[in-house]
C-alpha cells in the first residue's frame, strides 16, 4: 500500500459518503443517474467475487464489503425510498450499450480464461465507462448541483490517483497490470472535461453549468 493508492481509496470512499449524504440530507436523488449507480453495483459485485476465494487483508475485505453494500443501499434509496425525486426523464442512457461490449471485450482480452477472472476483467472494463450515464444526465439537464459536482470530482480523482499508484508500483515493485492501467486511463480521461469545469467554475463558487 502506497500513498497514492490509499488516497485513491479514500477518495472513492469520500465520493460514496458524499452521494449518500446528499440523498439522505436533501431527501432527494435529483441529478443522480440511477443507471450509473446500477453499473457501479454490477462492477463491485462482479469484481469482488474473490472475497470467496482470496484473502488479501482485513482492509481489503472491509473496503470491498463497504463498496458492495453502499452501492446496493444507493440503488434502494433511489428506486424505493426517494423514488419520487429520481430524474427518470433525463436518465435515458442505454446501459446495455456499455454492459455488452464490456462483456465481449472481457471474454476476448483477459489475463486468464476462468469465470472469476473474466468477471474481474469485465468489471474493470465496465467501471471505466460506468460514469457515462451520469455525465449524460448532467449534459442533458445542462447543470449539476455543487454537491453532485463534489461527488463526481471525488469519484473521478480515485482512478486518477490509482494511475499514480500504478506508476509507483511499476518502478518500486516491478508490478503492473495492463488491463487495469489502460481501463484506468480511459476512465480518468472521461472525467477530464468535468474536471476542467469543476476547477474553473465550482471551486470559484459558481454552479456547474454547461455552455448552452
Amino acid at each position: 500500500m502506497n500513498i497514492f493508492r490509499l488516497l485513491g481509496d479514500l477518495s472513492h470512499l469520500v465520493a460514496i459518503i458524499i452521494l449518500l449524504l446528499k440523498i439522505w440530507k436533501t431527501r432527494s436523488c435529483a441529478g443522480i443517474s440511477g443507471k450509473s449507480q446500477i453499473l457501479f453495483a454490477i462492477v463491485y459485485t462482479t469484481r469482488y467475487l474473490d472475497l470467496f476465494t482470496t484473502y488479501v487483508s482485513t482492509y481489503n475485505t472491509f473496503m470491498k464489503l463497504v463498496f458492495i453494500m453502499t452501492s446496493i443501499v444507493t440503488i434502494f434509496l433511489m428506486n424505493a425510498k426517494f423514488k419520487a425525486t429520481y430524474d427518470h426523464n433525463h436518465d435515458t442512457f442505454r446501459i446495455e450499450f456499455l454492459i455488452l461490449p464490456a462483456l465481449v471485450l472481457a471474454l476476448l482480452i483477459n489475463n486468464e480464461f476462468t469465470i472469476i477472472e473474466v468477471l474481474w476483467t469485465f468489471s474493470i472494463y465496465l467501471e471505466s465507462v460506468a460514469i457515462l450515464p451520469q455525465l449524460f444526465l448532467v449534459s442533458k439537464t445542462g447543470e449539476a448541483e455543487s454537491i453532485t459536482s463534489h461527488y463526481l470530482f471525488a469519484l473521478g480523482s480515485y482512478r486518477g490517483l490509482y494511475l499514480l499508484n500504478w506508476v509507483y508500483r511499476y518502478y518500486a515493485e516491478d508490478h503492473y497490470d495492463l488491463i487495469a492501467i489502460v481501463a484506468g486511463l480511459v476512465q480518468t480521461i472521461l472525467y477530464c472535461d468535468f474536471f476542467y469545469l469543476y476547477i474553473t467554475k465550482v471551486l470559484k463558487g459558481k454552479k456547474l453549468q454547461l455552455p448552452a
Binding site: 474473490d50 481489503n60 470491498k64 474481474w120 497490470d177
Partner: peptide
C-alpha cells in the same frame, strides 16, 4: 511480472 491473477487492489 508474475502470471498470478490475485488482485490485491480495489
Amino acid at each position: 511480472q508474475t502470471l498470478e491473477t490475485t488482485h490485491d487492489e480495489l
